[in-house]
Design a protein around this nucleic acid. Structure first.
Lengths: 203, 203
DNA sequence: AAGACACCTGAATCGGGTCTCATATTTCTC
DNA sequence: GAGAAATATGAGACCCGATTCAGGTGTCTT
């Protein structure tokens, strides 16, 4: 576990270097979010960060590297948002629905970031895979627990986790990204019905 | 309904022109599939088609235009594959599962093309939307019919259609694109269980 | 076979990108 | 405050892509 922040070549950074690196990351988030990976350029990122072009290469060796770093960061923020919400649920069904709500809220608050992650599919397939597997793992563990405690019926937790994750992503895209930024109440209700049916809790 | 094939500027094409246009489309499918939209270049497409660079602009006005044409073509092939399979089903549940199989078979046979469609999200959002809405519309109509005939319970066909489509896409990605090109039998079985539960047919 | 018309060509233009490097500045250490 | 180390700079070398254009080739008609 090395939490030490380094520049290119593993160079240790002074507080000033750490700050500049962070400025570049923040700028990259804005620029990638607005323009997408391919239309974003190093020049635009350094301009947004208020540093010279050459400075970029003191901290990141390529455009892809800073992009990957950003996706990992977003992934952990999304999982955090979901976990915070879902932990408020009294049972597994409620927890799942709240987890979705957390996801939708994050998506609504950061529609650009949502699109960044989708872009990683082509920019950096490993990172894209990492993103889905991390989220999936959380779902699958929760579902295994639910089966163990009898809150869910005879389901396959692994396959069901992929299915639920898929639904959350699609609904976020359909009603938040393509819609007016909010998932309507009737859709949330139907989502509740679907989750209940899929989880098959003993009555 | 104009089935007349034209070049840039609506120019009518002779048989030779039609053939060259098709050669470019076939080449574009291979090049986009292998390299993705951004790394593909007009030069590479014209080389793969065996024509000069300038020829490209006799038939398509830009890289995006030929890409959009390709996505629309793929969309109709996917829907056709799904329809052919699902029409073999004896009831709605079986039809849905067969439709998924058709989709998986298409995905397995054309993994590159699958990725092309995902790329359209950034290259051409309208086309991406078109793709999902066309597929969704077919699902939703089938589900409405199922509700009417009593093959499905008190479901919201529109929301349920988005959910089922999402599941199919995610499973295709997880087991075909990331996996070994085939959806295992046990996953298909669990998928059957999920569909049955979600459709809620009266027992 | 001459003219018309569709088709084809690739070198050249133009724009824009990544990354390097010689040099300058700031900060740290003693 | 002098020397070392870290940080910063932006012009320019280098590369590659989309698109245009002035002119060449094939094919059909009469």
């Amino acid at each position: 576990m090395s939490d030490v922040i380094t520049g290119v070549g593993g160079r240790a950074l002074s507080p000033k270097g750490v700050e500049t690196r962070q400025r570049l990351l923040d700028a990259a988030e804005r620029v990638f979010g607005e323009l997408g990976f391919y239309d974003a350029s190093i020049v635009k990122i350094t301009e947004a960060a208020g540093v010279g072009q050459g400075t970029f290469y003191l901290y990141f060796s390529s455009k892809k590297e800073i992009f990957d770093e950003l996706v990992r960061d977003l992934n952990s923020r999304i999982r955090h948002a979901m976990k915070v919400e879902s932990s408020k649920g009294k049972d597994r069904i409620e927890a799942e629905l709240l987890g979705f709500r957390g996801y939708f809220e994050f998506t609504a608050a950061h529609p650009d970031l949502y699109s960044i992650i989708r872009q990683s599919a082509f920019v950096s397939p490993e990172t894209f895979l990492y993103h889905y597997e991390r989220i999936w793992a959380g779902y699958a563990r929760a579902l295994r627990d639910a089966v163990a405690t009898g809150e869910a019926g005879a389901i396959d937790p692994d396959v069901t986790a992929w299915a639920l994750m898929a639904i959350g992503e699609m609904v976020g895209m359909r009603w938040i990204v393509w819609g007016d930024g909010d998932v309507p109440e009737n859709v949330l209700e139907e989502l509740g019905r679907i989750i209940r049916r899929v989880l098959d809790p003993p009555s």
